[in-house]
Design a protein around this nucleic acid. Structure first.
Length: 429
RNA sequence: GGCCCCAUCGUCUAGAGGCUAGGACGUGGCCCUCUCAAGGCCAAAACACGGGUUCGAUUCCCGUUGGGGCUACCA
């Protein structure tokens, strides 16, 4: 049968994991999963000057957060120096390389290189446009080209799926494969992700690191779904994919050649979608740390109060764009504090007559046999009828009295959530 | 500059010779409605340009323009 599918993601720990690399990692991961292959993580830390362990940690953390679990590794190139040196020596003695002031350079032969890219099709380059590149630095560390090729061969990588910024590097690497007598993997280059203005994605476009999105309250499911659709299309109109669907639908054929630009608005939409449809337990997993951070957490929320808390969360779900929205909007329900928005008070509670009405409403609610959503609504609406005023007057006033804000979930939901005692007390403003 | 690559609504994209050029985000309007969301419906919005090839080009070829990548003892 065919070779086992083995793909790798090979970041260099000279910076955080940015969204472009994350998208590459995601595609590698999807491809491996789709074909029951192995997803290998290799850290290309051969630039001793710029590589740090902190960055490595950050990259692993970001991948874990995104749910991109690797099957092998991480392998570190810095721990495999012997292999590269031996290979360089071999190239030296076979006449494919030569020494140059302590470094070892590859001797680019005459001719031209072509290779079939799984995404871009045939790529061809004349060898005389390729310089004699360095394989081994004078400090004994390999350069990128030697490192990747040696490792991809050694690790029996079947498909090299990486950013299109490597298209121009591939001919050099092809020459190396040839000089080493190794068979070629399939190369699939991914179009790059650019900023919203179609220029290279950089800090000035806002967050570019994966973990920055976590801090912004983006949920990994949303970022992953968004990234999956940047440069790849299932060929259908489906936008929301769970893991299984994505793996099922993913194919190299669906990858486009044109660079894509990062659209924060669409990411925000995906996030809102996921915030409203994520399973309760999953959402709680993301929410709990935020609530703790905000000082709003208490253990009873997942015990005695859990049913109540779930209904609060469900009310907030369609209103949340980022995780923090839950925090902001749940505060008035989770504490006894209330901040009255002056503008809201001015607009809906200023009239002394309205306060009178609220007192009457309070009494009616107090007298209700059962404090249910249905009963509170009936009570309020019939009171409005009796008073000859619009229900909206009572509703808006109640909203401000109860939450301090002019904007909140449906008032009867709010009342039910607060419960009779607190509702009545706050209406008696 | 040289080499390589790319080009459909503002953005992500479907399309693989003949389509009212489809979907999504965003935008505007309407509906729902107690506010805000969510949701539903509708609308505006694209084949970069010029040559070919063809009965017929968004689609194939060439060029121009624009954009991106590489051009390090960085990856």
């Amino acid at each position: 049968m065919s070779q086992p599918i083995r793909v790798r993601f090979a970041p260099s720990p000279t910076g955080y994991l940015h969204v472009g690399s994350a998208r590459t990692a995601l595609f590698d991961w999807l491809f491996a999963r789709k074909h029951n292959g192995k997803f290998i993580l290799r850290i290309e830390d051969t630039d001793v000057e710029r590589s740090t362990e902190d960055m490595t940690r950050g990259i692993l953390e970001a991948m874990t957060w995104l749910g991109l679990h690797w099957d092998e590794g991480p392998y570190f190139q810095s721990q495999r120096l012997d292999l590269y040196q031996e290979t360089a020596e071999r190239l030296l003695s076979s006449g494919h390389a030569y020494r140059d002031e302590g470094a070892i350079r590859f001797k680019v032969p005459e001719g031209r290189v072509t290779y079939p890219d799984a995404v871009f099709g045939e790529i061809a380059v004349e060898n005389d446009t390729i310089e004699n590149f360095v394989l081994l630095r004078s400090d004994g560390h390999p350069t990128y080209h030697l490192g990747v090729v040696v490792d991809d061969i050694d690790m029996r990588i079947s498909h090299v799926i990486r950013g299109a910024d490597h298209i121009s590097n591939t001919p050099k690497q092809l020459l190396l494969y040839r000089a080493l007598g190794a068979s070629l993997p399939v190369f699939a280059h991914l179009p790059l992700i650019l900023g919203p203005d179609k220029t290279r994605l950089s800090k000035r476009h806002g967050a570019t690191s994966v973990m920055a999105y976590q801090e912004l309250g983006i949920v990994p499911e949303a970022l992953r779904n968004f990234l999956a659709l940047l440069g790849w299309s299932p060929g259908t109109d489906q936008e929301i994919f769970d893991d299984a669907e994505l793996i099922q639908a993913f194919s190299l054929d669906g990858i486009s050649k044109a660079n894509a630009s990062f659209n924060p608005d669409k990411l925000a939409w995906f996030n809102a979608q996921y915030l409203s449809r994520l399973p309760q337990e999953k959402l709680m997993l993301y929410l709990k740390p935020e609530l703790i951070k905000a000082g709003l957490w208490r253990n009873s929320l997942e015990k005695e109060e859990s049913a109540w808390f779930q209904s609060l969360i469900d009310l907030l779900r369609p209103r949340a764009k980022v995780l923090q929205d839950f925090i902001r909007q749940s505060k008035v329900f989770l504490t006894s504090d209330i901040d009255y928005d002056p503008a809201a008070v001015e607009k809906f509670l200023k009239d002394p007559k309205v306060k009178e009405y609220l007192h009457i409403l309070a009494s009616r609610l107090q007298a209700l046999p059962e404090f249910t959503l249905q009963n509170t609504e009936t009570a309020l609406r019939s009171l409005a009828d009796e008073l000859g005023i619009k229900a909206g007057v009572l509703i808006n006033a109640s909203r401000v009295a109860l939450t301090g804000q002019a904007v909140a979930p449906g008032i009867f939901d709010v009342m039910t959530l607060f419960g009779r005692e607190r509702t009545v007390a706050r209406l008696r403003i």
